[in-house]
Amino acid sequence: MDWDKLRIFHAVAEAGSFTHAGDKLNLSQSAVSRQISALEEVLRVPLFHRHARGLILTEQGEVLNRTVRDVFSKLALTQAFLSESKERAAGKITITTTTGFGASWLTPRLNRFLEKYPEIEVSLLLEDEELDLGMREADVAIRLHPPTQPDLVQRHLADFDMPIYASPEYLAEHGTPKTLEELANHQIIGFAGWHLPLPVVNWLNDELHRQNIPYKGMRLAINNIAAVATAIASGIGIGSLPFYSATAHPNLVRILEDIPTPKVEAYFVYPDELRTSKRIAVFRDFLLAEINALKHS
């Protein structure tokens, strides 16, 4: 099997069409189609079902794509190792974390990292669904719960509180609740969506239910933690936020401080193959230093 044809096949499998794969590879649609037909002829099996809405992998195509994806991920890892200097941090690093942590906490701090390490290029992928580090969808992850994959190296970064916040404007207009029973009469803002970025993201809502405190439910629910923080800061209502999200809005007022709140456990996670990588090490140390500075601010 020709490596170039396999590269084109993988691009088509991921894109779902000859046209989109051609755009990515800078090839014409017809050139991509010819390469796939040639590969199918060599293998003597169909790799795609062709229909009006695009392409679907056949069973044989699924098997080949899994293998090709694994091979190319290992090649990318090898290339990174060969190009990386042991004396200095250099090269590309792909980081993934949740949209809330990435947008409100990590992104505003990346400038300091990039200035300190000018030979490192960063790609930041914000996804509430976890990317597969084993398949090299990213190099490292900042996970906001204990990792479950046994083959990944993990370093505990911090435990973030989930306090209850409101804006000064909201409290001036509606008053400050002193108990959960009083809170039930206020407008509560929370998270909505199938993929929860944090296991305890709606703990306040759950606690009201647990204590059988009657309330109207969440007045506003948003599927993005950074947007939830913005809504609370703009005076729409009261809600619980991880401490790192609240730091993006200095005007927020913490209320009901005597009520115990859950913690968000943050971990730095990466494949074992990257254990000796200099660029991974300096990014980990940067995170620890930034979090330590936050604790003492």
Rank of each mutant, 00 (worst) to 15 (best):
I213N: 07
G193S: 09
P150Y: 05
R136G: 00
H209I: 12
I222R: 05
V153N: 10
L183E: 07
T179M: 02
H174L: 01
A172R: 14
A138Y: 05
P163I: 05
A221P: 00
V140I: 15
P214F: 08
D159P: 03
T148M: 13
A166D: 04
E137L: 03
E207C: 09
V201I: 12
N224P: 02
N185R: 13
G190Y: 03
G190Q: 05
Y170N: 02
A226N: 14
I189R: 01
A138F: 12
S167K: 01
G193Q: 13
H156C: 09
G190R: 03
A166S: 15
L220Q: 14
H186Q: 12
Q154P: 02
I213Q: 10
I225W: 00
R143T: 13
L208R: 04
N205V: 12
R219E: 11
A221Q: 10
A172T: 15
Q154W: 02
H195A: 15
A158T: 13
I188R: 01
P150G: 06
K178T: 14
R219I: 02
W194V: 11
N223Q: 15
V140G: 01
R143M: 11
A184N: 07
A221T: 07
L196A: 14
A227N: 15
H209N: 14
D151V: 12
L183D: 08
A226M: 04
M218N: 10
V200L: 07
T148L: 15
P197M: 06
H186D: 07
P168Q: 09
E207F: 11
P197W: 04
E181S: 12
W194P: 08
W203D: 07
Y165M: 02
E181I: 15
H195F: 13
L180T: 03
L220T: 15
P197L: 07
E137W: 01
L157H: 04
E181Q: 12
N185T: 10
A166Y: 01
A227W: 10
I189C: 01
R143D: 05
L208W: 06
L152I: 06
Q149G: 03
N205G: 06
R155M: 08
P168T: 08
D159W: 07
